[in-house]
Design a protein around this nucleic acid. Sequence first.
DNA 1: AAAATCTTTGCAACATTGTTGCAAAATTAA
DNA 2: TTAATTTTGCAACAATGTTGCAAAGATTTT
Lengths: 136, 136
Amino acid sequence: MQEEVFALLGDKNLSRTPCRVEMLKILLESGSALPETEIRSKLPQHFDRTTVYRTLRSFLEQDVIHSIPLEGGDVRYAVTRNKERKSSQFHAHFYCESCSSVYCLSRARFEPPEMPEGFVAAGYDVLVNGKCRKCN
Amino acid sequence: MQEEVFALLGDKNLSRTPCRVEMLKILLESGSALPETEIRSKLPQHFDRTTVYRTLRSFLEQDVIHSIPLEGGDVRYAVTRNKERKSSQFHAHFYCESCSSVYCLSRARFEPPEMPEGFVAAGYDVLVNGKCRKCN
DNA sequence: AAAATCTTTGCAACATTGTTGCAAAATTAA
DNA sequence: TTAATTTTGCAACAATGTTGCAAAGATTTT
């Protein structure tokens, strides 16, 4: 775990600050995508909201994590697996309408919809909603 | 146009208040999905932000419009065409990375991605990004 | 090791999006 | 016309995210 965190940070030339290390651990340990409030509440020491947001921004800029905007302004953050890097043109996530958890569907395959005349697609974000493993 | 607005409101038992009528006109006339600020700025008379949000909420509750959350907390609102009612299990939208316009792709067909063990899908929201008709 | 530099953190303030409570104005019903 | 309901505006608030500035911690330079 520690090694994975260090590797992720090292790859992106991000220094090992306490806040970064702890946040990455939390995100890696969590099977689902988390909102900022939950990440912050899980931190072993107190960090200011600003610091957490700044760290999230660094991670986003370096594509260590990605954000998943939901209906109602809710946003979740999740570690970006190799399969779903920015370079990849397709991302899928699952929103459980029962427990509100969000999961990355990193290995989902998908047939792009046909585009109307004149529209050229570069990437696709799919949000599937339904019931997750735990709620079925 | 006027008739279409009245029909939409009538179907949902929403009274013809000035704000509702004008907002629906704006949304119907626009080929793309609009943020609240733009809807409000296009209104022929001044209405308070609160009133506009309350009207949006009525429309959302009655499925007259739907909201499209984007990366970065941006939200767009668009009239719900019959083809893409809540009852339908699939919605697709197009985000132009050049001019930031959002369009509904109401007639797009699509093959649902396969779900992992235990996950049951009920609906799909697809956000395609690329370049729109005007920007190509 | 001391001084200078760069980075991270916290605090206060602010912007934006959206909501709520309350009272005034406008509609609608009795 | 009076009474009841709905719509609107205003002020205040909540949540999410950003910015400026100064203090604290690391790094580097000499």
